[in-house]
């Protein structure tokens, strides 16, 4: 199961890269995120209360940045354990490409669940991941610009560019955060 996304951002690649590093903003926008701390330059620890359908549980998740190649690309890796129920692991390759309109952010994410979680919950992982990502995008865009619209759904040239950066970046992060806790 793969989730892919691509976002055109009218902002410099350096700015987009910088935007990836604001734990406070991510915390605000990840649905159910209770805390998100930077442990080191490449590690984040998050506590997320996942609430989807019958599932309502708190997950401790560790995010790691690997294959760092600033300001062009990296791999986000996340792991979460749900006690006896199993574990989830996800990764996303995020790439920033400069073009005439600014920066193109693309990500390819992959995720897996293991243990009992995989036995009973694998059929819901993709749907749950999409849902949280959508919720997250919505939160994030409204946080930065109350009039923001979803990428791909709006016209060019309306000046609502900055939110896209965040949307995209945060999207990648959200997608990552998701599977560790969404595994049900």
């Amino acid at each position: 199961m793969e989730i892919k996304g691509e976002y055109q951002i009218r902002s410099s690649r350096g700015d987009v890269w910088q935007a990836l590093n604001d734990p406070e903003m991510l915390k605000k926008c990840i649905p159910g995120c209770e805390s998100l701390e930077k442990i080191s330059d490449t590690e984040l620890a998050a506590t997320v209360m996942a609430s989807i359908g019958p599932v309502r549980a708190r997950f401790n998740t560790r995010l790691t940045l690997e294959n760092l190649n600033p300001p062009e690309s990296y791999t986000l890796v996340g792991e979460s354990k749900a006690g006896a129920a199993g574990f989830g692991r996800g990764s996303a390759d995020v790439t920033l490409t400069e073009n005439d309109d600014g920066t193109l952010l693309s990500y390819v994410a992959d995720f897996r669940v293991g243990g009992k979680l995989a036995q009973v919950g694998s059929r819901l992982v993709l749907g749950a991941t999409r849902k949280i990502a959508n919720d997250f995008f919505g939160n994030f865009s409204r946080e930065l610009d109350p009039g923001a619209t979803r990428v791909g759904a709006d016209d060019a040239g309306d000046g609502k560019v900055t939110p896209r950066i965040w949307l995209a970046v945060a999207g990648a992060v959200a997608v990552l955060l998701i599977w560790w806790f969404l595994l049900r």
Binding site: V55, A82, L117, V120
Partner: peptide, 9 residues
Amino acid sequence: PTMKMRLAS
């Protein structure tokens, strides 16, 4: 079943 898996309490 969700409660048994500790995914809801």
